[in-house]
Design a protein around this nucleic acid. Structure first.
Length: 1046
RNA sequence: GGGCCCGUGGCGCAGCUGGUUAGCGCGCUCGCCUGAUAAGCGAGAGGUCGGGGGUUCGAACCCCCCCGGGCCCA
């Protein structure tokens, strides 16, 4: 039987209880068992980085995933939803360094020891996996939490190794000397994805370089990185740009003609252009390095210290003559290679100048820029010194400005895969479409080779062994292979353990592992097969691959979407996923990024603490489109919370009455599979709500299938508030008060029961806790299933959908609104009935609709009669003075008077477009205003489908009914003040003046019935029990009531 | 400088493939209701749909240019 639920809702308590229930009864495992024979659906969790606690963005991410997967599971898909964790990499190393109180690599190696450091990193990661798992679980997210994939396990590492081996076999893995971005603090190479651009102030200097073979002539360059001047080996100019030689007291200066004004503006020098020529004429000119006496750089190439030509030179900033240091810039490196100028990099990985830098050896790049600038000044080469604010790359974890250095690194030749990548992404379904076709495509087009080596400790070791004597390379792909070939037992596949393994080369030499570890982006890039332990085991892979669905934030375009694509092409020659939902970022109310430094971070726990996880879940799915950024807003969360209160109240209402009446759905043929009653002779509004809920099922199902989560939640929101609470419940309330067994009451119960049952299932993937709770109370006694999450998704009952009726109701609801508005104008309360309401319309659809729902209209409009007409009131003409005046001048006044006195037939003729002759003038429609003349007691209000007219006259009957309802309401309030049971009987006594008493006397029966008064005395009474004085309008009434004890 | 997204009443957002007087919530003003009630409902005020061109019978929606914001890249 249905039991009434508690009056007030405590979502947080409910959620904790429900989660405990799931745990105790192993509901998640039971669902998994239930769907295990369904169609496979491989969802791959983008592994969160295990280094902190979850924030709103990660919570949103998991909520989206959970909702979609719950929906699919209810639909019978065998959903694979293993949680994943990203556990390697610099961010963890940086945090562990902090915990250990150290600041650089040397200390790790010398003070702590690599083994202890790696152990600490592992411990750190595992600790955070645990913390974050707990936080995710509190959201109600259902994943395989006990069996996650983690990038730090040997099995996982083997899959990554295998992928590297594949790259090697395909010739995509290369070692190369190139300019890459380095973090001098972390002392390692960084990938593009690990660089964050920020606005900073840097020096901006202009330097003149003396031409070797010319007297007093200089080329002028500009730079924001003075420290790179040490390694300057060339000056680039554009072959087609025009350059000018200008005469100044500092000598003859050469720079781009269009930029010569800086000579005056920046250097403060008067100048005269003495010669103009194309850049190509400068090629091959030798110059002297201004600091040549201080540095120790000895380039081999004869082309070093000459002017070279390059297309990348622009006139945007600087002088058009570009300082070129092949050891410190990718473009510099490329252009110098063409000229055979080798890169020299007098800077080590800590950002400290080496011996090659001569007197600068031991100084720190950037930090000691001033020393270099001072020297330039001393040698007379500095023309101008200023500062500039510009964007510069920083290490995304430690925020140190990056430097460019030429070093040897390992690369994946993405540039060779690019065309295939572009083709492969077309096979993927992107939501929204532009995430793939525009954004991702653009990123891939600009992709460069992928630097995968990192000079660090906590990561997947590069599985590359190189022979010390002959340089032969061997790439391994499993622990077993490594142990066999090396004859060494390996504890685990991390540094320093793997480094113990030495291989024997064919040449007899010893092979050692390359010291580097892998870029973490590579770790997660292999997740599609690594989480299935492929290729060491293949059955899981055979069963699940490829990935059916992933969803991550738009930052992952350059991250995980990309790394998976790259790794997929290497390992399996294809993109490993089939469908991607790209979601947005969470921002604060002002649309700014949440960050600790701004202090605007909102933790998911904070929201759960105040409202519960279900409110948070519904809110984030409802607030906007998933792929747009979410501006978190407490007020909006509150709005969602209110919806839950209303939903709860609806269930309080339903369970209260159903329980009183011992309503048993099974007795009425409720089918526990389809959640339907057999079609029956329902009342019209019951048929309407059933049509609505079944339409909603159809729409919400479609929206969830197409990942339009915001549409699904918005439809449910509107349905609950508008259709269910504000309209349907209001309509059926009187029926539920009928005390005996009645057909119309049963009809309401059945419709309501079916509606609420189906609604619960629809809501269950979105808000799994409250729906579980209500299911237990409302449905479980009849369905016998243990949990709502062990149910099946429901299909709409097409026979119950009646679009015409739904449209009729739309019209009627607007009509009722118009009536409310008219009542407001006439100051007639809704409690008071009116004699008559008339609807004027010529629209056949409207006529049909109101005919269909006539009784309902009468009830809701509280009118004794209702009529439809095509014409109402008398048409009257008023003169349109501006039109008359313009045309008839002096005669206008006379005409106006006559027009006012014309009869209705003239109005009709004019309205239909005819002309009318008055006083010899032709009067047309535009000369007049046609108005309706209404009797005094009529109030009108127009709405989209017509106009309603209310007769406001209060006759005897109206007065009786009205006063009676006033009395009833007050007695009911008094019952409530006494906290009487709904079923309790009372005695009531009413003392009012004779006039009023006369009216309510005739409604005695009605009043008794409504207030459950066994005794009702009116007039001069002797009060008993609870007595209260009231004012009804201007009239005083004293009422007393007393409970009759059974 | 390039790519993508966004720009609708004070605030937060709908508006599906272009179709009659552009909706909703919050807030504000004024009312109402009360056997779901420490809730709820209605009405009102409030909008050059960022700006300017164009296509179309018709544009918030399509095209072009510009302005502002965000993300990513250079």
């Amino acid at each position: 039987m249905i039991e009434p639920i508690e009056r007030s809702i405590d979502l947080r308590k409910i959620e904790e209880d429900v989660q405990k229930f799931w745990e105790d009864k192993k509901i998640y495992e039971k669902q998994k068992e239930k769907i295990k024979n369904g169609k496979k659906y491989y969802f791959l969790d983008g592994p969160p980085y295990a280094s902190g606690s979850i924030h709103l963005g990660t919570a949103w991410n998991k909520i989206i995933k959970d909702t979609i997967l719950r929906f699919l599971a209810l639909n019978g898909y065998n959903v694979r939803r293993q949680a994943g964790w990203d556990t390697h990499g610099l961010p963890i190393e940086v945090k562990v360094e902090k915990e250990l109180g150290i600041t650089n690599k040397r200390e790790i190696e010398e003070k702590i020891g690599v083994e202890n450091f790696v152990k600490a990193c592992k411990d750190f990661a595992m600790r955070h996996v645990e913390i974050m798992t707990r936080q995710f679980k509190r959201l109600g997210a259902w994943f395989d939490w006990d069996n996650p994939y983690m990038t730090l396990t040997d099995e996982y590492i083997e899959s990554a190794w295998w992928t590297i081996k594949r790259a090697y076999e395909k010739g995509l893995l290369v070692k190369d000397f190139r300019v890459i971005t380095t973090c001098p603090r972390c002392e390692t190479a960084l990938a593009d994805a690990e660089i964050e651009y920020k606005n900073v102030v840097d020096p901006s200097i202009y330097v003149k370089f003396k031409l070797a073979d010319r007297e007093n002539e200089y080329i002028v360059i500009w730079t924001t990185t003075p420290w790179t001047l040490i390694a300057n080996l060339a000056i680039s100019v554009h072959p087609e740009i025009e350059y000018a030689k200008v005469e100044t007291k500092e000598g003859k200066l050469i720079l781009a003609k269009d930029l010569v004004n800086i000579v005056k503006e920046k250097f403060g020098l008067d100048y005269k252009i003495v010669e103009v020529f194309k850049g190509r004429e400068l090629e091959g000119l030798r110059y002297e390095h201004p600091l040549k006496d201080f540095i120790n750089i000895k380039p081999k190439s004869k082309k070093a210290y000459t002017v070279i030509l390059a297309d990348f030179v622009t006139l945007g900033e600087g002088t058009g003559c570009v300082h070129t240091a092949p050891g410190h810039g990718p473009e510099d490196f490329e252009v110098c290679r063409k000229y055979g100028i080798e890169a020299i990099c007098p800077v080590d990985e800590r950002g400290v100048f080496t011996e090659e830098a001569g007197k600068y050896a031991g100084l720190r790049v950037k930090h000691d820029d001033d020393v270099i600038i001072e020297d330039l000044k001393k040698v007379g080469a500095l023309l101008h010194r200023g500062t500039i604010e510009h964007r510069y790359g920083h290490c995304w974890r430690c925020k140190t400005p990056i430097i460019y250095r030429a070093t040897e690194q390992w690369f994946i030749k993405i540039t060779e895969l690019k065309d295939k990548m572009l083709k492969e992404i077309e096979r993927v379904e992107w939501i929204p479409e532009w995430a793939g076709s525009a954004r991702f495509r653009d990123w891939i087009k600009n992709a460069k080779d992928w630097t995968i080596s990192r000079q660090r400790f906590w990561g997947i070791p590069l599985p590359i062994w190189i022979c010390e004597s002959c340089g032969a390379i061997e790439v391994l792909s499993s622990k077993k292979e490594l142990e066999e070939k090396s004859g060494t037992k390996i504890e685990e596949l991390h540094r320093p353990y793997v480094d113990k393994a030495l291989l024997k080369c064919k040449c007899g030499g010893v092979m050692r592992r390359v010291k580097d570890v892998l870029d973490v982006w590579f770790d997660s890039g292999v997740a599609a097969w690594a989480s299935l332990n492929y290729p060491s085991k293949s059955e899981e892979f055979e069963r699940w691959y490829p990935v059916d669905f992933i969803t991550e934030g738009h930052d992952q375009t350059r991250g995980w979407f990309y790394s998976q694509l790259g790794c997929g092409l290497i390992a399996l020659d294809e993109v490993p996923y089939r469908r991607v939902l790209m979601h947005g970022f969470t921002l604060d109310e002002k649309g700014e990024k949440m960050s600790k430094s701004l202090g605007n971070v909102i933790a998911p726990e904070e929201v759960i603490e105040r409202y519960g996880a279900d409110v948070l879940r519904f809110y984030v799915l409802w607030a906007n489109k998933p792929w747009e950024d979410l501006k978190f807003n407490w007020k909006e969360v509150d709005v969602v919370n209110k919806m839950f209160t209303v939903l709860w109240n609806v269930f309080v209402f339903a369970t209260t009455y159903m329980s009183l009446d011992k309503f048993d759905p099974l007795k009425h043929g409720f089918d526990i599979k389809s959640y339907s009653f057999p079609s029956d002779d329902y009342l019209i509004e019951d048929r309407w709500i059933l049509s609505r809920i079944n339409s909603i099922i159809k729409e919400v199902t479609k929206d969830l299938n197409s990942l339009q989560l915001q549409r699904a939640t918005r439809k449910l929101y509107d349905f609950i508030l508008e259709d269910l609470s504000r309209w349907y419940i209001t309509l059926i309330r009187p029926r539920t008060w009928i005390e005996h067994e009645a057909k119309e009451k049963t009809s309401a119960y059945k419709a309501l029961y079916e509606t609420l049952s189906k609604l619960l299932v629809l809501l269950s993937p979105i808000v799994p806790h409250i729906t579980e709770y209500l299911y237990q109370k409302f449905l479980k006694p009849f369905t016998g299933k243990e949990s709502i999450h062990l149910e099946n998704w429901i299909k709409e009952d097409r026979s119950k959908i009646n679009k015409e009726l739904e449209e009729d109701m739309v019209i009627v609801r607007e009509l009722i609104e118009a009536v409310s508005s008219a009542r407001e104008k006439a100051r007639i309360k809704r409690r008071w009935p009116v004699r008559k309401i008339v609807l004027k319309t010529k629209d056949e659809r409207v006529k049909k609709a109101v005919e269909n729902l006539k009784e309902l209209i009468k009830r809701q409009a509280n009118t004794l009669s209702f009529e439809v007409v095509e014409e109402f009131g008398k048409k009257k003409l008023l003169p349109n003075m501006s039109a008359l005046g313009r045309e008839f001048r002096a005669k206008a006044k006379e005409l106006a008077k006559m027009i006012e006195n014309l009869g209705e037939e003239y109005a009709k003729r004019l309205e239909e477009g005819y002309e009318v002759e008055i006083a010899g003038e032709r009067i047309r429609k535009e000369h007049v205003k046609i108005v309706e003349e209404l009797p005094e007691n009529i109030v009108s209000e127009s709405f989209s489908y017509g106009t309603v007219y209310i007769d406001t006259e209060k006759d005897e009957e109206i007065l009786s009914l009205g006063y009676a309802r006033e009395i009833v309401r007050r007695i009911q309030e008094m019952r409530k003040e006494l906290d009487l049971n709904i079923e309790a009987y009372i005695e009531a006594r009413i003392e009012v003046d004779r006039e009023i008493a006369k009216y309510i006397m005739s409604q005695k029966e009605y009043i008794s019935r409504e207030t459950r008064a066994k005794v009702l005395e009116i007039g001069e009474v002797e009060h008993k029990g609870y007595k209260k004085e009231w004012k009804i309008g201007n009239v005083k009434a004293i009422i007393s009531i007393e409970e009759i004890k059974p």
